[in-house]
């Protein structure tokens, strides 16, 4: 890198800037909208002429958004936790054990991931209504786990396969029970994989709109993406774009925090994971 000429450096910088702009413009646009007053909302300026925090004040002044935010956080965290725990155990078994029906199990879990979710919405709606799960937290958590598990199992089993089996044998020889070997040797080494999976699953649950809009009907369990679509302006002639933008900005923050928090763990895990020789 030190030997890079100024010309090459300039080209790389330009390329980086283009990529960053391409990726960030829509996000910055939303941020910009969230700070505009209703009058200047459609003036097309990238930088707001009149700054206002009214949109943020509006979304936090009603219970609609706060309830939805609570639902989102709770549902996404619980789903992530359960999916990662189950996924870890399943992936470990798939990576380590030979058992009858292993291929079938992996195949079926892949099938679930391939299934178009929209085709499952109607049956799920009917089932949840008759089971009394409709418009409850478990009513969303269950389908989220179902769809997150294949992803979790796939990512995690790849991580487990990379851990030398001899480490486990060594732990056994050192006097560990299988549970101790897993907890004290395998799990710490698989941590980067677990955190990666947790991030992916969390983002999936957090951003889901389809299930959220179809399987909820009230504030009891409606998550933010679904709640956004029910936003209204202060009168029916007013467009709620400003408040929707403000809400979109607010719900991005937990994801950023979540990713940044676990990213540190991922890096820490990878450096300590250097094995063998």
């Amino acid at each position: 890198m030190a030997a890079m000429t100024t010309g090459a450096k300039a080209r790389w910088t330009l390329l980086d800037i283009i990529v960053v702009i391409y990726a960030l413009v829509p996000v910055l646009w939303i941020v910009s909208l969230s700070f505009k007053t209703p009058a200047t909302l459609t003036d097309g300026n990238f930088i707001p002429r009149e700054w206002t925090l009214q949109n943020y004040a509006d979304i936090f002044s009603t219970t609609t958004f706060l309830r939805a935010l609570g639902n989102s956080i709770g549902i996404a965290l619980i789903s992530t936790l359960i999916a990662v725990v189950l996924g870890t155990m399943a992936a470990y078994a798939i990576a380590r054990l030979e058992f009858p029906g292993k291929r079938a199990l992996v195949g079926v879990s892949l099938l679930i991931a391939m299934f178009p979710q929209v085709s499952l919405v109607s049956p799920l709606f009917e089932m949840e209504r008759s089971l009394g799960l409709f418009d409850t937290w478990p009513g969303l958590i269950l389908p989220y786990i179902t769809f997150a598990l294949p992803l979790a199992i796939y990512t995690l089993s790849a991580f487990f396969r990379e851990i030398p089996w001899e480490l486990e044998k060594a732990a056994k020889m050192d006097g560990a029970t299988p549970a101790q070997a897993f907890r004290r040797v395998i799990a710490p080494l698989a941590a980067p994989g677990v955190f990666t999976t947790a991030i992916l699953v969390f983002i999936f649950c957090w951003n889901d709109f389809l299930f959220a809009i179809s399987l909820t009907s009230t504030e009891a369990s409606r998550t933010v993406p679904a709640a956004l679509s029910f936003f209204t302006g202060s009168s029916q002639f007013e467009d709620p774009t400003g408040t929707i933008s403000a809400a979109a900005v607010v719900i991005t923050i937990p994801i950023i925090v979540f990713v940044l928090f676990f990213q540190r763990r991922i890096v820490a895990g990878l450096t300590s994971g250097a094995v063998k020789g």
Partner: peptide
């Protein structure tokens, strides 16, 4: 008996040291 109950230590070809 499980390995842990045999009171035997083993050195592996890859050493199998715990990297963390």
């Amino acid at each position: 008996r499980a390995p842990k109950d045999r009171d035997i230590a083993m050195v592996f070809q890859s050493y199998a040291l715990y990297p963390h």
